[in-house]
Design a protein around this nucleic acid. Structure first.
Lengths: 205, 205
DNA sequence: CTCCTTCCCTAACAAGTGTTTGGTAGATTA
DNA sequence: TAATCTACCAAACACTTGTTAGGGAAGGAG
């Protein structure tokens, strides 16, 4: 089932090469779009020919699948930790946003792909977990926001659903312009974003 | 150059059919992605065969071009009116955001396409106007924000570039979930969005 | 040295792509 | 009625797509 189970593991270099190819594939997918990306272009970027990719992967779709599910697994590992910590609504939102920017920092291309392709993919059975993830996502954020309204740490005069989409989009869209080598660290960007979302861009006094 | 210039206009029904096909093409482009959309699918949605599209249009790319440039023309007509009105920074931002949501309301599919494909397209010479538009866009928003900081109606402790991307993204991403038949009018959504961006989602006391 | 596995190449395949060409029913014009 | 034009169809075109099959060089294992 998985590759590193039995005693005779295929040496580290094999898995490393696999990961390397997957990373370049993610890069190309991210800035050309999945459908617009040809298997030959991925191979080219990986320094090999198109057919050779099929020694490592079943199909182009498998690559996409692995990229997205690996990202979502890590994402939920982080989210679940936050959600289980029993923080207040505001602190939960802050932690979720910060965690999200960390994920953008690490899985930049995967996040970009997720954003662009998630909509059409989630109807496909193979990518049903995208829809599941989105549902869990929405649930976690909405509950937290509603709890915040009840506890009066968030405004009650706004459509909660609108607020959810507002916060969600603001965070994830950042993946389209964020570059890991930029001047701001993920935490710094999270801090400023949170400041804007929570306090607004007009002065408080 | 354009189709309605000379005296013998090709009767309204011809232009109407053209617009109809273009609208369905925009729909399909928007939710399947441009590259993933086949010319046969557009024709199917328009009730004709693939080849017949080429009586009305030069190419698939021409359709995309017309869709995007028509949208941008209308967008800038609205923006220029706002920018020429000589409003204060805050009022300018409010007007720009409201105008943006109106464009999303009218050109929903075009906006979605623009968001998804703009990045790869703008490098292509034919779609160079996308890059130009984005530059003008950034300039207008950045100037307004900076003016607001100077006049102390916007916070000065934030990275203006971050604020710009923040506001820009929040507005346009809405096109991915906004449906014209929803419960909120564009103006109402604009109002709540502006309230969040300007005042924040925590209570001001 | 021989065998075997790993990793890639060469060369092709079938399906699907955007596009073109020639034709034609039906309305419009003369 | 005859000629022309409009808006489409039918069928094919050249090309690109993801994918597969067979082979072979490199290197470790016996």
């Amino acid at each position: 089932m998985n590759s590193d189970s039995s005693a005779s593991a295929p040496s580290t270099s094999s898995a490393a090469r696999r990961a390397e190819i997957l990373a370049t594939a993610a890069q190309v997918f991210a800035d050309q779009g999945y459908n617009a990306t040809t298997v030959r272009r991925i191979a080219d970027a990986a320094g090999m020919l198109a057919g050779s990719l099929y020694y490592h992967f079943d199909s182009k779709e498998s690559m996409l699948d692995e990229i997205l599910s690996a990202f979502l697994d890590e994402l939920w590992a982080g989210y679940d930790t936050v959600l289980a910590a029993g923080l207040g609504p505001r602190e939960t939102i802050e932690a979720l946003v910060t965690e999200s920017f960390r994920q953008i920092d690490r899985h930049g291309p995967a996040v970009a792909i997720y954003q662009k392709e998630s909509r059409h993919l989630s109807v496909q059975p193979r990518f049903g977990y995208l829809a599941d993830s989105q549902a869990r996502f929405e649930n976690a954020w909405l509950r937290t926001l509603e709890r915040g309204v009840t506890e009066k740490v968030f405004r009650g005069d706004l459509d909660v659903r609108l607020v959810y989409r507002f916060v969600r989009d603001t965070v994830w869209v950042a993946a389209s312009w964020y570059r890991p080598d930029g001047t701001h660290s993920p935490e710094e960007i999270a801090r400023q974003y949170l400041s804007m979302v929570l306090e607004g861009i007009t002065p408080r006094t």
